[in-house]
Amino acid sequence: MQAPEVAAYWAERRRYLEKVRRVPEVRQRFWRAVGIYLLRRILWSFGFFPVFIAFWLPFVLSSFNPVVMATDLIPILQNFVQANPEEQATSLSTLTIAWASIGFFFLVFDFVLTPFKSPYEYEADVYMRSWEQLNHDQLPDKV
């Protein structure tokens, strides 16, 4: 590939991105997409995974038998209710720490595995496809 054609492509892309960043509708779509992306990642990491692990592990350990799971958990819950408030607070703080650590663990991996897709980049991709079609004779085959 020749450098001038590649430089022209990226210069046009940068110019278009600067232009499209000033459009209020696209800016509004960007902030909405950021909010939805963060909300999904947080709900998925702190809502689904800790709850799934909290119910799936006892279910597996009870050999997928809900009766065995209930008979194992009822004495634990009775001991919790009959314990003094200090022991209850310690148990609740331990559960909160476990919940948060599982949530943050999955949140980090969720951010890595599902990166944010910017509406600006989408707009630039669409524009550059049409720009490539218009300037096809000036660009090398692999751009």
Rank of each mutant, 00 (worst) to 15 (best):
129 R>G: 11
38 L>Y: 09
26 V>P: 00
9 Y>C: 03
98 A>H: 01
42 I>N: 02
69 M>A: 13
10 W>E: 14
1 M>H: 15
9 Y>P: 00
17 L>C: 05
106 F>T: 00
117 K>S: 13
46 F>I: 07
46 F>P: 01
62 S>T: 14
18 E>P: 03
83 A>G: 05
117 K>N: 10
57 L>V: 11
59 F>I: 05
26 V>G: 04
140 P>E: 05
65 N>V: 09
97 I>N: 02
70 A>V: 15
69 M>Y: 14
74 I>C: 15
65 N>W: 07
60 V>A: 10
95 L>M: 10
127 Y>F: 12
126 V>R: 11
116 F>W: 09
100 A>S: 06
62 S>N: 13
56 W>N: 09
71 T>N: 12
40 R>M: 08
96 T>A: 11
48 F>W: 06
66 P>T: 15
59 F>E: 01
57 L>D: 07
129 R>Y: 12
76 I>G: 10
51 V>Y: 08
4 P>D: 15
107 L>S: 04
97 I>W: 00
100 A>Y: 04
74 I>R: 15
134 L>S: 13
69 M>R: 14
80 F>H: 09
53 I>A: 03
78 Q>H: 07
13 R>T: 02
105 F>P: 00
137 D>C: 09
32 R>K: 14
141 D>M: 14
57 L>I: 13
38 L>K: 13
73 L>Y: 11
75 P>A: 07
91 S>P: 00
10 W>N: 14
27 R>S: 04
118 S>R: 04
80 F>E: 06
24 P>G: 07
38 L>E: 12
48 F>G: 02
70 A>S: 15
40 R>I: 08
46 F>T: 03
123 E>Y: 10
50 P>R: 00
73 L>K: 11
116 F>T: 09
10 W>K: 10
47 G>W: 05
41 R>I: 08
31 W>F: 02
28 Q>A: 14
90 T>K: 15
33 A>W: 01
74 I>Y: 15
76 I>Y: 09
125 D>R: 14
83 A>R: 03
113 L>W: 02
123 E>K: 09
134 L>E: 12
12 E>K: 05
14 R>G: 14
99 W>L: 00
67 V>I: 15
5 E>K: 15
140 P>S: 06
85 P>K: 03
22 R>T: 03
65 N>P: 06
122 Y>P: 01
93 S>N: 12
1 M>R: 12
124 A>L: 07
58 P>Y: 04
22 R>E: 02
87 E>P: 00
66 P>L: 12
5 E>R: 15
16 Y>M: 08
137 D>K: 12
129 R>W: 10
48 F>P: 01
6 V>M: 14
118 S>Q: 05
71 T>G: 11
35 G>M: 12
94 T>P: 01
45 S>M: 03
68 V>W: 07
57 L>E: 08
1 M>I: 12
49 F>W: 14
21 R>P: 02
85 P>A: 01
93 S>G: 08
15 R>M: 10
127 Y>N: 03
91 S>G: 03
47 G>N: 07
30 F>P: 00
86 E>G: 12
62 S>F: 08
79 N>M: 08
9 Y>K: 05
